[in-house]
Design a protein around this nucleic acid. Structure first.
Lengths: 220, 220
DNA sequence: ATATTTTTTTAGGTTTGCCTAAATTTTAAT
DNA sequence: ATTAAAATTTAGGCAAACCTAAAAAAATAT
């Protein structure tokens, strides 16, 4: 079963949307994520439905079938492996990898994926802290929570981000915040929920807004 | 200037054909190389001609313009870098890399190519001994000749292949013949031009047909 | 409960890149 | 120099994946 680039992108989009709202995914959500018109999405939904990759009821949204989910996960696996390759082997920074990985994820070669996985040491997480599905589509979920929910004086480790925009990631770089950094909450403002935190290794103290804290994922 | 996958493949095909016969390239040659119908080729030639990537005169064949050549060389550069990546980093053998590289060569990212090139140590030749063009499209031609032209008792080094078919490459592997191996011509048959050669390092003696010898490139 | 708004689908159109069949041009053979 | 053969182009079609505009269905507001 080989699927077109467009089909793969739709399946990936549906998967990502159903991660947030686990119920049904709607035409407009897909259209805005893929930056296309709703009418085009309807076209494709009908096609994917015929191929049994999604369950589709007119006007009622869609969900992935097991085979649709399998395709989506294999694309996501490839995307995240390539992102890690780009950062760990080629020296890309985490804000530069997305667009290239978006292309590389569609390269068709089981052997390539297997060997790339081995070359990278069968990694479990990508440069943004997102889990990399294994060849069967299984992945580890870390028990992360947003930094904004951390208690005062709590010590935690940065484990991921919610927002993946280059602008946000570069801002974190500037602040000295990156994956794996241990930080301690030094104070939270009641009014605007902004926080003072310190980076344990460097001792650096920084101030971050609630908006930023909400987009940083941490583990205890 | 971004070109479609199809356009890139046509330009590469025209480049490859004009390497053999440096004059004009004809519609049917392109069609058979790309496994398409002549009518389809004509369509595309007209499009490429409008974009000034080729010089095209109806019924008279085509040749690449400087900008067409530049595109072709950048695709070939990427193809060969990826082939080397696959063999040297991921453990592919030289008969397995072509199809994957055929996909990877279309990934668009100057940064990726630059970093891949560096990662591989700015290599000059791919796993088949073919030269890798640099960022400006320049490449070193080795002064190779077919093994079939080697004189009796001559000692030479394997530097490339003409035929790139997996079947041929796997046959060479079986014979213990690979890039960089030094060999000595031990005898040539007058009748069918087959040869006896020995591999210097291992001392192994093997017999190869003229057909095979013609497709192995060597340097003194 | 009906009217309005929003969402989704349908209908019909476009471009890209391929195809077949027929027409044309060039090349080769007598 | 014709004629036959081969190569190429033209004309018309098709599928994929998008689009706009209009119609239909569902959700929301009064």
């Amino acid at each position: 079963m080989l699927y077109s680039l467009a089909e793969e992108n739709y399946l990936k989009a549906i998967f990502k949307l159903s991660e947030k709202k686990p119920d049904k995914v709607f035409t407009n959500d897909i259209a805005s994520l893929l930056d296309m018109k709703a009418a085009s999405v309807t076209d494709m939904l009908q096609k994917l439905s015929e191929k049994k990759l999604i369950r589709y009821v007119k006007y009622r949204g869609v969900s992935l079938t097991p085979s649709g989910k399998k395709v989506a996960l294999s694309i996501i696996r490839k995307h995240r492996l390539w992102e890690l390759f780009l950062t760990s082997k080629l020296g890309f920074s985490w804000d530069e990898v997305h667009d290239v990985a978006e292309q590389l994820e569609h390269i068709r070669s089981e052997k390539l994926v297997k060997h790339l996985d081995q070359f990278l040491g069968k990694p479990k997480f990508d440069p943004h802290g997102d889990p990399i599905p294994d060849e069967n589509g299984n992945f580890q979920l870390q028990k992360v929570f947003p930094l904004s929910d951390a208690k005062n004086t709590q010590t935690i480790t940065i484990a991921g981000v919610i927002d993946h925009q280059p602008l946000f990631l570069r801002y974190l770089d500037q602040c000295g915040l990156s994956l794996g950094k241990k930080i301690k909450v030094q104070g939270k403002t009641g009014y605007d929920k902004s926080m003072n935190i310190s980076i344990l290794h460097s001792g650096q103290k920084i101030f971050i807004s609630h908006d930023v804290a909400k987009n940083i994922l941490v583990i205890p």
